[in-house]
Design a protein around this nucleic acid. Sequence first.
DNA 1: TCATGCATGTAAGAGGTTACATGATTCG
DNA 2: CGAATCATGTAACCTCTTACATGCATGA
Lengths: 183, 183
Amino acid sequence: MSAEINATAASLLGFLHDGPMTGWDLVARAEQTIGPFWSLTKSQVYRELAYMADHGLVTPGETGRRDAKPYTVTDAGRAAFAEWAARGPGEGTIRLPLLLFVTLGRHLQPGLLRSVLSEQRARQAELLKQYLGLRQVLGEREDTDPHVLATLEYGITVARATVRWIDRLPPEVGARETPHTRR
Amino acid sequence: MSAEINATAASLLGFLHDGPMTGWDLVARAEQTIGPFWSLTKSQVYRELAYMADHGLVTPGETGRRDAKPYTVTDAGRAAFAEWAARGPGEGTIRLPLLLFVTLGRHLQPGLLRSVLSEQRARQAELLKQYLGLRQVLGEREDTDPHVLATLEYGITVARATVRWIDRLPPEVGARETPHTRR
DNA sequence: TCATGCATGTAAGAGGTTACATGATTCG
DNA sequence: CGAATCATGTAACCTCTTACATGCATGA
């Protein structure tokens, strides 16, 4: 049994399966391939890399230009990754501030929820446009990993669903003092 | 300017706008009305209640049966809530382990991703069924807050979208060693 | 030479989870 | 009387964010 790792470390190990990378590379890679669904900061990355190096899951290579320190995944690292994967993705904690906002809409200043929703709609529509553009580009390349494309597809699906959800919200949502509030 | 509060405290304050509640009540209420999109634990609830009582945003009432201590929101509390609301919901950090899993699918044991996806599909379908039943029940009652209903509607929309997304995934997703992996 | 991008890290604090500990009340 | 539910809280730990600090390399 190898060292236990968390999902953050596992994501780094996963990326390292494609070859040695520096912390900086990893941040960029995560941002590009799964940014919208898996946030991580450089602080976390350097911490997890240090932890993993300590436990022999990765080995630092020679420092290249500009102090770049590439890490390579070891056999133990691959084993730890496989163990993490075998545990499955779990349910994960979901915290969507927008939904909290909507739920509490009854107690917000008149108009606030409405403006927040229209802003969100614009944001999601913009995101959708970007995703569609990206799909176009990636879809044309032959070396695109279908898994990455699938993630993108999820983004498209959800962005689209969110926009439609906002459009179909009843007019009472965002209105002040819905009947049942009175007591 | 009143004390700064975080989204967790704000959610509690929001719920308290409907009348005094104990920590226990708040946990239950959150679970019921927004559970799937806004997780919180009792540890957090008691911590935030203590903090807010300290800062005069809520006042504990007399201990009722079984040590139940109901909290009432104060004017300062309402002000703090309004300030939080004025800041808007922000973008929020999203971390969906399933999507990370899919992204890294190329490096998973053959079949693992496939089984994870089919399990997720079942889970989402089950969730969808529950949501639809709940909508039926809540929709018939006249005192249902349309905002709560709207949140539920989002759950339905996304669950449905997720199921369809899984159903439409190309066969390569979950398969071992897609062409571009070879180097 | 100066701004930008590459590159690594530390420190402090906020937020969130899990396990532990305790006790009252109700219902069967 | 015993199990389930109600009810509060603490302690330890993990994770994540933000701000700070440093320095090299490249290109305009």
